[in-house]
Nucleic acid binder design. Structure first.
Lengths: 199, 199
DNA sequence: ACCTGAACACCGTTCAAGT
DNA sequence: ACCTGAACACCGTTCAAGT
């Protein structure tokens, strides 16, 4: 036993992430266990601790990758002439289509008072960049930091609407309701924001 | 051993909820364990299963009580002439002051595809009622179901902003930022909403 | 150097056995 | 009828021992 060297450390790391994501997609975050991951990649538990310091580390990497996937999703569906509303609805769509992974972003939290790693926050922030660019483009009156604040506010709001949807049972009706909320949110917020007086 | 009858079932239930909330407040949801609860109330593990069917049941009751606490908090701080913004900032204030309990509302989720109990949803909804009343009062143009939609949208949005705050480390600066986001959100949303054309 | 798998401490839940 | 506490299955993590 031992010393198989069939896969490099990097390959094992990728395999772990891949099967872990499959588990979360299919059975949800609560079903994610080391032994299950080990069995699925054909190694034993100890191997996972060669490539991740612990479960928390592994989970943070999956969460970071989910933000990357969201960014990708928003980028892919972005067309010329795309609106802020399209972007917000794209976010909601991603959450619905990736329920398990998306819910895990919030079901798992660092312990009270613990720090979130910097590389994680970067991937989190990057998913908001497209919204910043879009607001910036359609606006002349606000300063950069005001656009930044509006971006954060709007994205966090959309997140809140999506969160409420996924806390209930997803159904065609609840999804329709969440979409209506996002549409109303974007519509009202943008109108109010563009009417804001310059300082 | 056994047959102490020092406390009624109802009393034990209340004691369990009380110490469980203390644990979550101080150490967070991840520190909530049956054995710890049992030790804190001076009973053994088995006793907890006399009054709750399982941990999930206990947790759902704590979460329901947190919504009740939020409702209470909003009701208490409501003055004559209070604005929508005051209400939204009151929500944020509650989340900051009750970080552990509030975070648990979202850290704990029912399993993928599982149903949320009805009595829980009722307590959740009730915390939104004050906002509905306030929007209704300051508005003449919208139909009831439109006011309902606006209430959901606004409350979920505030929730999203608060969630983002509590995912990071709470600090005077991040709290100030979250407050600014809530203020901007309410201001812009309300202005846009009141300008909406009647159908 | 890489990987195993037994061992450890801890977890939620059950239930026969005491009073 | 009420409550105990040992037992069970399962969990994340470690690390001496194999190749």
């Amino acid at each position: 036993m031992a010393r198989r060297s069939e896969h490099s450390q990097a390959e094992i790391k990728e395999m772990v992430l891949e099967v872990a994501e499959d588990i979360v997609r299919e059975y949800g975050y609560s079903a994610l266990k080391v032994r299950k991951i080990a069995a699925d990649i054909g190694y034993t538990v100890g191997s996972i601790y060669m490539v991740f310091t612990n479960m928390n580390d592994l989970i943070m990497h999956i969460k970071a990758r989910t933000w990357q996937k969201l960014h990708q999703h928003l980028q892919n569906q972005q067309k010329i002439g795309g609106t802020v509303q399209d972007l917000a609805l794209g976010y909601l769509e991603f959450a619905v289509e990736n329920e398990g992974l998306w819910r895990m972003l919030f079901e798992h939290q660092v312990a009270l008072g613990e720090q979130v790693p910097d590389w994680y926050l970067q991937d989190n922030q990057r998913a908001f960049e497209l919204m910043y660019a879009m607001l910036k483009q359609h606006d002349q009156v606000h300063a950069d930091n005001q656009v930044q604040l509006a971006t954060q506010t709007l994205m966090n709001s959309v997140q809140g609407v999506a969160m409420h949807l996924l806390m209930l049972n997803q159904s065609p009706e609840t999804i329709k309701l969440a979409k209506a909320e996002v549409v109303l949110l974007v519509e009202c917020f943008l109108q109010g924001w563009s009417n804001e007086v310059k300082e």
